[in-house]
Design a protein around this nucleic acid. Sequence first.
DNA 1: GTGAAAGCGCTAACAG
DNA 2: CTGTTAGCGCTTTCAC
Lengths: 334, 334
Amino acid sequence: MKPTIYDVAQAAGVSIATVSKVINGTGRISDKTRKHVTDVMQQLKYQPSMVASALTGKRTFTVGLTLPDLANPFFAEVARAVEDRGHEYGFNVIICSTDNDPEREIKYFTLLTQKRVDGVIVATRTEKDLFMKKLLQQHIPIAIIAGEMPALAVDTVMVDDYLGGHQAGSHLIGLGHRRIAVLAEDTGTSSNRERIRGCHQAIRSAGIQPDDAMVTVGGFTVDEGKAAAGRLLDMEEPPTAIFACNDLLAIGAIQAARERGMQLPQQLSVVGFDNTILATIIDPPLTTIGQPIQEIGRQAMDLLVQEIKGEKTARQRIVLMPELVVRGSTAPLL
Amino acid sequence: MKPTIYDVAQAAGVSIATVSKVINGTGRISDKTRKHVTDVMQQLKYQPSMVASALTGKRTFTVGLTLPDLANPFFAEVARAVEDRGHEYGFNVIICSTDNDPEREIKYFTLLTQKRVDGVIVATRTEKDLFMKKLLQQHIPIAIIAGEMPALAVDTVMVDDYLGGHQAGSHLIGLGHRRIAVLAEDTGTSSNRERIRGCHQAIRSAGIQPDDAMVTVGGFTVDEGKAAAGRLLDMEEPPTAIFACNDLLAIGAIQAARERGMQLPQQLSVVGFDNTILATIIDPPLTTIGQPIQEIGRQAMDLLVQEIKGEKTARQRIVLMPELVVRGSTAPLL
DNA sequence: GTGAAAGCGCTAACAG
DNA sequence: CTGTTAGCGCTTTCAC
């Protein structure tokens, strides 16, 4: 069996209280016994049980991370950033891909609470915030990532979606485009609404009235994006540029255009959002609105840890700036 | 505070033993009290603490998953598959991206063991199997994913790398290619060696002697692949086809070729390995050796769970077949 | 400085 | 069928 604190105490000829103190660096222990105990621990390859210590009221040093789908490159990158920052703090992260399925959400919620995670980072767009409300109700520290601008007092890190949309719109306007379509993920989320609003505002600033018929819902996959973009391109007066609310959709748009024999970027400019690895791989390389993914993950974990440690006086909302990354998928209107 | 089993017992007017029994469905309880207790639990929103129950010797229902990098789409997809299967069994997974860094490996190892995870799925290529040996030494159930064909008696799910390499080689030979280069990740891993060996065998079967000078180490990133492929393409007699040991490298190769103004696939055929989402996005779409990622994750979790439950009489090695997926990046030699 | 002892929330004999 | 009780491995007063 794995050695316990008793084994160490016995082998070292001290009490378990003493061992506990050297483990935690608490209380006053003479250098001599400290060293002795440390040696014995090493020799026995003793590893304190975090489950036992958690039971006495200490942290579990585990946090949950909920996201729609880990296989989506954007979220995988976020998860990696969260993991890394957590690792620095000594926290492990349990991944919870929910597919935005309420059933899965509550199953994960149950599991996480039963395991007494110290907190959870929510990167899902949850319906009516049910999931978060439950978490808050149980007084579980949470930090959320993304654009939801929640109606709850929770720590949030988000990027300025409005600005991002505006950057995309301005860029296209600057290139001379006038018929600009938008491929939304799902107009229901405030994040998307903001992106669209920002883009439209940029269009309006140029004295052009954005056309609502040119806003289409594309979802979250390349194929859905392709289909939706296809509808746009098949219109009587098709757009000359498309702003897609995520890179996956943008890629779908590029593929749809290709299928129709169009030359890119000459016949169609496409702007994405996220700046995932995919943006650099697609041909032409995708002009996109870059989210500072590393920073998002890092800040979210920082907020959560502060919350967990109770070092916080007030909740905060951190707004990160997106950045236009110009690549080859956009060009001046001919 | 969160209600405990005592609160439930008191509210229901029974002993904690009874409550415990209804929670676990053990012992004999009258339907009446069972129902009553259940009601009280619901009313109190009681959620049994898994940390307490873990302390009494039960499972933690948590497993670790080590991989080189969660941000790598291939591993993200694997992780998602593992997560999903685990979810079905009621297991959570803690992600451990190691970057193949021994330091991180041992830090994660410590954390995982202290948390008393029930097992770990190892998808890292670990140096000298140190990590796994430690795990085994502690009698922690493990299952490993990937091509290592380890010299240890551990549950393994792998794809037939030799076959995959052979499929790639045969495909290229069938297209008339004779000068076929290989972009390896790192010739040190048996997985890569097998892929190369398979490819070379296919070449030999056509009566051609593979050229060792045409095997280059490319690493794990697009940029590294690009640089390595560049070296190949700048040779006196450059290859007409490249077999890359993963999709990322293949993409690097495509980019290197593009940079040199080459037409693909006319002037260069490229075959990848993994069939990640990237393969469908790159232009031309990548011909690649598909790994059954879903199946890999699923089987690995199945093996691990069996191991954890002690339902196993013997360790097994499951070998999955790769599959050639022909897309647009390969063409007959002109 | 160090140790004895009382929990933390739950499980598992063992009694009744 | 149900309850009593002794741990599981660790932390934390509180004495000495």
